[in-house]
Design a binder for these strands. Sequence first.
DNA 1: TTACATACTGGCATGCCGGTATGTAAATGG
DNA 2: CCATTTACATACCGGCATGCCAGTATGTAA
Lengths: 214, 214
Amino acid sequence: MAAPRRTQAQRRAETRQALLEATIDCVVEHGYGNVTTAQIALRAGVTRGAQNYHFSAKTELVAAALEHLMDQLIEQVRLDPPRGTDTTERALLLLDRLWNLHDTPAFKAATEIAIASRTDTELRARLAGLNRRLIGMIRGMLDETFPELTGNEDIYPIMLTVLSAVRGVAVVGLIGSPESIESLWRIVRGQLEQLIARAVDKAVGKSASGSPRP
Amino acid sequence: MAAPRRTQAQRRAETRQALLEATIDCVVEHGYGNVTTAQIALRAGVTRGAQNYHFSAKTELVAAALEHLMDQLIEQVRLDPPRGTDTTERALLLLDRLWNLHDTPAFKAATEIAIASRTDTELRARLAGLNRRLIGMIRGMLDETFPELTGNEDIYPIMLTVLSAVRGVAVVGLIGSPESIESLWRIVRGQLEQLIARAVDKAVGKSASGSPRP
DNA sequence: TTACATACTGGCATGCCGGTATGTAAATGG
DNA sequence: CCATTTACATACCGGCATGCCAGTATGTAA
């Protein structure tokens, strides 16, 4: 119970982080439209005064929270890239990882905020760069994961299509039951798997990987 | 300026419809989170009293509006099914129609409301049946449009995948610029086209339709 | 014409939300 | 040890969305 004698930088960092994470939690739980600054402060264990000291407006807080969240996700993904000798195998690993990323509370929060940004100019401005960063990150991960495909421009359309499909399923997942989403994803995944396998076969030449015809 | 001497049923129907359509418009324009009942009433040319008489709560109004909207869309789709002798041709026509449906203000509104329903139990309950109705409608349209494929269960996975991808693109379209979405759709569409063409070829036997090899 | 039901009006009142203003404690630096 | 800055607490204000209600008009039935 003794005062831990934190340094100023520590105090600052800790309360800010608590606020950012509480913001995400509240958005996930109550939805962006229903969330209030008071709820966030309460959940963060911080008074509204402190909250306002660090983030003078709600928009600022929410935007910062989303950026913080995305930083976490990117870091988390960077730390262990998909491994495997077979190109198709790595691609499917990546597919599952992509889905897992979308099947997360974080995605719920991100979607809510993104939707809200449609009619909130401030939010929109701050989020504009995020999407660019995101696809840049994915591209980077692709190039890194598939060095043998460098320079092959055919894989980006595939990537975008797969990403779109995953997002589509994930969006339904926001409001559907977990079971129905699970089954939907299994179906869609089957199709995407074929799509990817075909593309990989075509890209690397039909010998090195893929399904050998009996 | 003389009172048109409307019957009660007419009065009722007209104000209700005005309210429902105004609701959609307002949601599209301001976003679900920012829309107020006063705005809606104003836009509908109806007083808040009348509004409250017909729809005692905001939730009820919004849910009814979305149902009304979907009825319109379904009707609109039913009225002219895609025509063409070639199976693939009809499928691609259907694909484009599906996209056009998602590239519409109505879809913006529907998405906003659906997202909102995630954390609003009342809304959620009322919208639960809508998704079932929607995919049921699409299935019906498929069976109707492709009588030659009746009984072929392979096409539903394709349908769900295509639908997911379209939704994914459409969701990005909510916050992206029209140009970027247009280009994204062109890319994804190319992939889906291949997916569909392959599936159709496989389903009907490679002779009747599809790409004749020179 | 009378009696009733349905549709609509306008305004009030409560609650709550976001932002601000002012006061207090904790850390830093001399 | 004191002064200053940084970090946080408490109390408050203006505003506004929502739902409700008492009254009015318009259509309908007896």
